[in-house]
Each structure stands twice: as structure tokens, then as C-alpha cells.
């Protein structure tokens, strides 16, 4: 399925590539923690340090994304979706291959807790500054971010006191406060409630219409179908299918044994 040569641009319109993923391999070197549990005595004593294991999370994946596309990434748990997008964001170095982009992609992930001991307000300031805004810009944006996240009442409390949904909302609001050329959203919306999901999907469409490019990882086929113009299916680190959302989702559902496309 992987395409080693560049896709020829369609003759009808000049499409501008914004992200090129070129033969990316991601390999993790992990110390396995000891031996597998032994069925007689729980854990075997041999080798407490464990052995170095190679986990090949993403295998030779290539694709090109054009300006204004919203790309859904689907696949079962552990299929390499997050690893791939972390490489696109520049947070993980691929073992082979490379990612090229027109601007620095901004990743918004589930695990991204900035500073749990600090209030939501301070996390907004830190997040803004880390993304390269000036202090003044960030301070001006802060009220809008708070409002979008719907956290006016709690914004002065430490982030460790937030529920997972609340902190996901805040992180989304921080990342989406400005239009980014390339925004990557990694399952961050799945914890939000219905009302927030509507708001954030509207925001994503708005970004796409402003010629931004959005990557969205989700297990909700409904979210994917509602927002994406293209879907990539990763399975065991291999790019299995890439194309029209409905087609790919149908094939994926067939693979996983789910009959209907629903939420």
C-alpha cells in the first residue's frame, strides 16, 4: 500500500502539500520487565532487569497530505496511530524515513498534562508561551480559552483537581486558541461531553475552512465521518487503507466485526 514515489498533482487544481510522511519506521527499544508471569509462582525470578525488546510500532508508512484536508486516523488499540502522529509533531524521531511539513505541527494528546500543580490559568499562559506566542498575546487569549473550555468557575484551581474531561477540554482550548497550519488531535475529544464535542468539532471545521490541516485520531466513527475529508487506517503499524472516509470506515468496521457505523 505504501507509495514510494510522489503522487502526481491532479491537473485540475494546484494542490499544495503540507505534510509528507516518507517511509517512516518507528522502533521503540524497551526493557521488558522480567520474564512472563509463570503460571505456578507468578513471576519467575530470572533476569529482573529484563531484556531489551524492540517494538516496531510503525512500519514504513508514507503518505502526503494537502492543504485544507482533515485526515482521520483509525485503527485498533496499539496499531501505531499515536506513535505516527507524535513523529509528525516532531516529538518522536523515526528510526528510518522522515516527516516533512510546511509548518511546525501542534499536537494535542490525551496524556498531555502540562503542570498539574498549577492552576488552569497558569497552564494557559505556559502553553501559550511554549507555543511561541508573546506574553501579551497569551494574556489576551486567556479569557477566550477559558470560555471555550467552559471552565470559568474552576480556572483558578490546580489542574490536578480537574477531571480528565475538564483537563482535556482545557488542553483542546489552548491548542485551538489560534489557527494552526497543522493541528493534530489525538483522541483528546473522546473524554469531553456531548456539548463540548459539538463545539470542538465546529472549531475543527472552522480551522479546516481557514485552510488549516487537521489530523484526528478517534475511535468514534461518527466523529471521523462528521469532520474528516480523508481517512487513513493503520493496523499493526502498517498503512492498510487510505482514502474516502466512508469507504475506509466501512472496511475497518468489517475488519473489526462491527456491523453499523455509529457512535
Amino acid at each position: 500500500m505504501t507509495d514510494e514515489t510522489a503522487p502526481s498533482a491532479p491537473a485540475t487544481e494546484e494542490r499544495q502539500p503540507v505534510v509528507v510522511v516518507d517511509g517512516v519506521d518507528i522502533i521503540y527499544q524497551v526493557y521488558a520487565s522480567g520474564k512472563k508471569a509463570n503460571k505456578y509462582n507468578g513471576v519467575s525470578k530470572k533476569g529482573s532487569r529484563g531484556q531489551l525488546r524492540q517494538v516496531h510500532a510503525v512500519k514504513n508508512v508514507s503518505f502526503t497530505v494537502y492543504k485544507g484536508e482533515t485526515v482521520g486516523i483509525i485503527g485498533t488499540n496499539g496499531s501505531g496511530k499515536s506513535s505516527l502522529l507524535r513523529a509528525v509533531a516532531g516529538l518522536t524521531q523515526p528510526a528510518n524515513g522522515a516527516v516533512y511539513a510546511s509548518a511546525r505541527p501542534v499536537l494535542l494528546g490525551v496524556g498531555a498534562v502540562l503542570m498539574p500543580a498549577l492552576s488552569g490559568e497558569k497552564n494557559i499562559l505556559l502553553g501559550g508561551l511554549a507555543m511561541g506566542y508573546s506574553k501579551k498575546e497569551t494574556e489576551e487569549l486567556a479569557p477566550a480559552i477559558t470560555e471555550f473550555a467552559g471552565l470559568e468557575e474552576f480556572i483558578d484551581l490546580p489542574m490536578r483537581t480537574y477531571s480528565s474531561g475538564m483537563s482535556a477540554r482545557l488542553r483542546f482550548a489552548i491548542a485551538a486558541s489560534r489557527s494552526h497550519d497543522i493541528l493534530i488531535i489525538d483522541e483528546a475529544l473522546s473524554v469531553g461531553d456531548q456539548q463540548f464535542r459539538k463545539r470542538s468539532e465546529a472549531r475543527m471545521r472552522e480551522m479546516r475552512d481557514n485552510a488549516g490541516t487537521v489530523f484526528l485520531v478517534s475511535h468514534s466513527m461518527k466523529s471521523i465521518l462528521d469532520t474528516c475529508s480523508r481517512v487513513i487506517w493503520l493496523e499493526k503499524g502498517v498503512l492498510t487503507m487510505d482514502g474516502d472516509p466512508r469507504e475506509v470506515c466501512n472496511a475497518y468496521n468489517e475488519y473489526t466485526g462491527v456491523k453499523t457505523i455509529d457512535d
Binding site: 510522489a6 505534510v19 509528507v20 508514507s62 502526503t64 522522515a98 516533512y100 511539513a101 510546511s102
Partner: peptide
Amino acid sequence: MTLAEFATTHGLKRIGA
């Protein structure tokens, strides 16, 4: 044209470099 050349001719930069 390889993908890498395609990317550079369109002014894309390697991410994470």
C-alpha cells in the same frame, strides 16, 4: 522523484530536525 525531493521542492522542512 522521491517523496523527499517532492517535499523539498514544495518548500517543506523536515520535522524534529
